[in-house]
Every structure is written in C-alpha cells, then in structure tokens.
C-alpha cells in the first residue's frame, strides 16, 4: 500500500493517511486514559490501605518501584504468554507502570495531611469514613493529581511500545517506520507517530491543569 516510487512530503503523508492516523491517535488516547483511570483506582485503594503503616507504605512503594524497573519491552514480552497479543498485555503493562507514581503520591499526600487536622476532625465527632472523605482525601488530592499527571506522561511514552505486542495506538507508526528505515516514508511514519504522541501528551497535560484548578478548593490552591 505504500508507494515505492518515492518519498512524499510529511504533510502529504499526513493527508493521505489521515483516517488511519486519526484512528490510531484515538486508540492511543483511549488506551492511556483507561489504563491511567484503572491505575488511579487501584493506586488510591492501595495507598489508602497502607498509608497508616510506615512498613506497609514502604512495601507498597518499593513493589511498585520494582515493577517500574522492569524494561517495558521485557514486561510486554513476558505478558504474551499468559495474555496473548493485542490489547490485553498492553493495557496490563501500562496499568502496572502507571501505578508507581500514583501509589507513591497517594501515600505521600495522605501521610502529609496535618495530624492536628485529623485530630480536630475526630474531636468534633467525624466518623472514620467522613474524616477520610471530607478531610484527608481532599487535602491529599493535589498531590495525588500530580501523581496521575506523571503517570499519564509515562503511559503516553510506554504506550508506543505496546505496538511490539500488536497493541493499539500510535506505536504502530513508529515501529513500522523504524522497521523499514531507509525505505520510503520511513521517516514520515516515525515522525507522525512521535509527534502524535507528543501532541497528545500536551493536550492531556493541559486537561490536568484544568482538572486541577476545578477540583482544588480555593483554600488550598497554591
């Protein structure tokens, strides 16, 4: 499907592959969004379970840290055996990588809440759940959100490598491009994939700034 006569310009390439590129960009965004959302739910839950104990907090953060050090190609490869190719291993790997910043920031955020405020909350008769939902989580939220932001950037980049296990997203462009380096359109493909991811990352980050402003009460905004 790629013309071998000669290399077309980058803009021409974009124009000719518009639909495919849109689709892959959409898939990439959707994959990152879903994995970060899953990581947020799991990460905050883990953070809530461990933040009261220093030992458990250390255990959770270092476990997430160990996962983090596994090279992404290796992890994806290892996941092929139990999960096969395609969406499943990509999503699982991305979620695992996204966990570390979220778990760590949840623990840091929750344990950073001024203990005298928790004491005041107990003293005026708040229940355990109310203290968590109305005092601790809202106060830790800006820190947790920063973790989510870092996770999203990570997932954007690592998401490209998902193409290695035939995962969805813009990684396909990069991998195909690199595979035929020197051939026609190789640079265009790699460039399209890379720029697409950078653009997506910027848009997501802009969204986080907005979410941060909307969800942080004026009283604790920096």
């Amino acid at each position: 499907m790629i013309s071998l006569e000669g290399t077309v310009s980058f803009w021409e390439y974009l124009g000719s592959r518009r639909e495919r590129l849109w689709f892959e960009t959409w898939q990439h965004a959707s994959m990152v969004f879903q994995t970060v959302l899953a990581a947020l739910v799991i990460g905050v839950l883990v953070g809530l379970l461990v933040y009261r104990s220093e030992r458990l907090s250390a255990l959770a953060t270092s476990t997430a840290g160990v996962i983090f050090t596994v090279p992404s190609l290796a992890l994806l490869g290892l996941l092929i055996t139990p999960l096969g190719l395609g969406v499943a291993p990509s999503v699982v790997a991305l979620t695992l990588y996204s966990l570390l910043p979220i778990v760590r920031n949840t623990v840091v955020g929750l344990s950073g809440v001024d203990r005298t405020l928790v004491d005041a909350a107990r003293g005026i008769g708040m229940t355990r759940t109310a203290i968590l939902l109305r005092v601790e989580l809202p106060l830790a939220w800006p820190v947790i959100l920063t973790g989510v932001r870092v996770s999203t950037q990570l997932a954007m980049g690592i998401g490209a490598i998902a193409a290695y296990v035939s995962g969805p997203g813009l990684g396909e462009q990069i991998f195909s491009g690199l595979a035929r380096l020197g051939g026609a359109n190789a640079i265009n493909m790699t460039l399209a994939g890379t720029l697409g991811i950078v653009l997506l990352a910027l848009i997501f980050d802009g969204c986080f700034v907005l979410i941060g402003r909307l969800t942080t009460p004026r009283g604790i905004r920096v």
Partner: peptide, 11 residues
C-alpha cells in the same frame, strides 16, 4: 473541641 492553631480545615 478547640485546639491550638484552631485546627480549621483549610479546604
């Protein structure tokens, strides 16, 4: 219940 520094919730 009143504590030092008032213990008001900043948010």
């Amino acid at each position: 219940y009143v504590i030092q520094n008032a213990g008001l919730f900043p948010h």
